[in-house]
């Protein structure tokens, strides 16, 4: 029985380890996404300021805004598209309007396409870094200050920055 015991313990340990590994895939996946740009995820923290401007080429950045059907807002970019030099710091605003009669808290999830360019999309300041409370009927412009990394490979000429606005998870759970 003791020979059994030590083998059983090892196998059980392996099971527990693999269960934990399932959860470990969550942060691993984030790292993986950062590297490969799956789903165009961008950093959730502010990037450093650009150190140079590449005047030699221009890229087009388009802005999109959508919102979850569960949150009644109007949400749209003030600017549809910009042509800019990599390294050139720009600010654009997204306008949100709370159409409900109650205060809501929203979060915006960014996604950049093509995904492989996502890590070259640098946000210095973004309304997506924090949750955004909105008073009943409130309308506000939410800025994002960004630049395109001059290291962006030359094959990318069009980037799209898309935000999807959700009711914040803490609030929807208590709904």
């Amino acid at each position: 029985m003791s020979a059994h015991r030590s083998l059983i313990n090892k196998l059980l340990l392996a099971c527990v380890a693999m269960f934990a590994f399932g959860f470990a895939l969550v942060p691993l996946y984030d790292v993986f996404c950062d590297i490969t740009g799956i789903n165009g995820k961008t950093d959730k923290v502010a990037a450093a300021a650009p150190d140079r401007i590449d005047r030699g080429r221009e890229v087009t950045v388009e802005f999109l805004a959508t919102h979850d059907p569960a949150v009644a807002v109007n949400f749209a970019p003030e600017t549809a598209r910009l042509r800019l030099n990599p390294g050139d710091l720009q600010t654009v605003s997204f306008v949100v309007e709370n159409r409900t009669g109650e205060p809501i808290v929203t979060t915006a999830v960014p996604s950049v396409s093509p995904g492989e360019a996502a890590r070259h999309f640098m946000k210095i300041e973004c309304f997506c870094f924090q949750e955004q409370p909105l008073a009943p009927g409130e309308r506000k412009a939410m800025p994002v200050q960004f630049y395109v990394d001059p290291e962006l490979p030359a094959r990318f000429k069009n980037l799209t920055l898309s935000y999807r606005l959700y009711r914040s998870v803490g609030q929807s759970a208590s709904r």
């Binding site: 099971c15 380890a17 693999m18 269960f19 399932g22 895939l25 969550v26």
Partner: peptide, 14 residues
């Protein structure tokens, strides 16, 4: 089985 069933358990737990 020992390698992957716990991972499924993790996924459905999530």
């Amino acid at each position: 089985l020992i390698l992957v069933m716990p991972v499924l358990a993790g996924a459905v737990t999530m």
